[in-house]
Amino acid sequence: MRMTVLPIAPASRLLLPAILLLAATAVPAQAYVGPGLGLGAASTALGVVGAILLGLLAFVWYPVKRLIRLARKAARGGGAGRR
């Protein structure tokens, strides 16, 4: 039975030993976050992201939508005038 060896890219060849080396030399981070603080931090981050998205929607999307609608209306009006 012949075994075929798949060619490994040079970057992957370096990546695996690097991951193993990092995993072997890891020390305890002592960065435990409890469920209360974790959920609180997550909801704060979600709130900030939601506020930014909402701001983008209000300051970018609706004005652009209005502009597109106005442009379409103008094009339609111009077309009707030419006819």
Binding site: V48, A51, G55
Partner: peptide
């Protein structure tokens, strides 16, 4: 409404955090 709600949401998030 989205403008006002964005300001409101950002304020609430920062105060809670």
């Amino acid at each position: 409404a989205a403008r006002l709600l964005a300001i409101h949401l950002m304020g609430r998030s920062l105060v809670a955090g």
